[in-house]
Design a protein around this nucleic acid. Structure first.
Lengths: 233, 233
DNA sequence: CTTAGAAATGACCATGTGGTCAATCTATGA
DNA sequence: TCATAGATTGACCACATGGTCATTTCTAAG
């Protein structure tokens, strides 16, 4: 019966939405997508229940499996949606802060990150979940892409900062990018995960509190790595 | 039948090992614990299968549920074991590097982290998993404790560094600790999660490569925040 | 109003889950 | 040798899972 494995396979599993699903009325599509995101954000991939999703979305199971061939494909679709939104957002921020001085720019990027998480906490949860559960191998692929983009983004900022003389010229660009990316990532993480936040009181903090934190962090970083710093070893 | 809920409850669920389990021959205990760790590291809490664990450990299901009252309690036990080992390790490193200069100390701590992950990759996986799955609420409690410890640890290092004049005195200790902790954490994360490592080539890197990376990172940090740095704003 | 084709449905399936417990085995002491 | 108490077992349970598909419902053209 090995052959049947190949014969009965319906379609390749792509992250793309099925034709049938894409042709649905927008309102219904959105309601369903919302239900997907909620369930995956709450439970992660593996524990997410197709039955619950069906229930939340108010459609029948048969329909769901007409729209998507498998749980995996459904997840890939959700993930792709989230991914696109994040990329879009990154692009906007980069454009908006194009002419700012390096550290001001970095500060605004951090603030934008906070805003994004506050606006889309569910998507953030999905992102942070997939990172470590590693449930869905294809998800990992997309994630790698996303992360690479983020590193490239920060890396280019740093390089530009050096060229403009806003950052000490002798600095190792890659390492500096790594450090900045670490701080940025960690900060957003703490905003999103109360587990990590026993003493900082940043989880669920107000925008004002977050912004003050960011400002102080950036001030610190600026004094450390700003171009007026001492000569390197 | 609400009452039965309380009457039939066997024991409070503590992370402690059961009396019965603790009295097992050490060899058997270790074999079983190993099986636990393997399964949880591979699948995470929710997807880990008690049946598989039983199979791996070579014991019967009845025995397993004699040793631990529930999957949750079993997980708590495993987690506690891992937690103790990490704490123990942290303590050692702190003691060993007591008299070093701040940045040298920080460097050694990073190296120690890498070593730990290389020695106990499974435990690291469990740690990184539980972070975001949030499956087990009690697990989150322990995790918070661990993280708080790590922050306290780095915080005290920084304070000491300032007192000794190895770090610029005007620096905000909390923020500096946050930054250092971010970098440390991120670095270890990248070592452990290939998803995060598209360009850095640190995942599964040799000790030598890791150490060179660490050295360069620390050099950078030292030049930025070392006491010979420029005056703060 | 009829009817053909598409869309939606939910009962159903095999499989796997965490957890139980009466029956069996084992080791010790008399 | 037997009796007894504790440890060990695995068949068994109710339930949930992802996925299927024969049937019903909807829709729109003739």
């Amino acid at each position: 019966m090995v052959i049947s494995k190949f014969i009965t396979r319906k379609k390749a599993e792509t992250p793309e939405e099925t034709e049938q699903f894409s042709q649905l009325p927008i309102e219904k599509k959105e309601r369903i997508t919302e239900a997907f995101i909620n369930e995956f954000a709450k439970k992660g991939f593996r524990a997410a229940s197709m039955n619950k999703i069906v229930e939340r979305a108010g459609i029948s199971k048969g329909s769901l499996f007409n729209y998507f061939n498998s749980k995996n494909q459904l997840f890939m679709y959700v993930y792709k949606v989230a991914f696109e939104r994040v990329k879009e957002y990154l692009r906007e921020v980069r454009e908006e802060t194009k002419d700012e001085e390096f550290f001001t720019r970095f500060q605004k990027i951090m603030e934008a990150g906070v805003t994004f998480i506050q606006k889309h906490p569910k998507l953030a949860r999905i992102y942070y979940r997939i990172l470590y559960t590693g449930d869905s191998p294809e998800g990992a692929t997309i994630l790698r892409e996303l992360h690479a983009e983020s590193m490239k983004f920060i890396g280019s900022l740093v390089k530009q900062g050096v060229e403009r003389g806003e950052i000490s010229a002798e600095i190792d660009v890659d390492k500096a990018a790594f450090i900045l990316e670490s701080v940025l990532n960690r900060f957003l993480q703490v905003q999103n995960q109360n587990v990590l936040d026993p003493s900082l009181n940043l989880y669920g903090a107000s925008s004002e509190e977050s912004e003050r934190w960011i400002e102080e962090l950036v001030t610190l970083l600026r004094n450390w790595m700003g171009e007026s710093s001492n000569e390197p070893v």
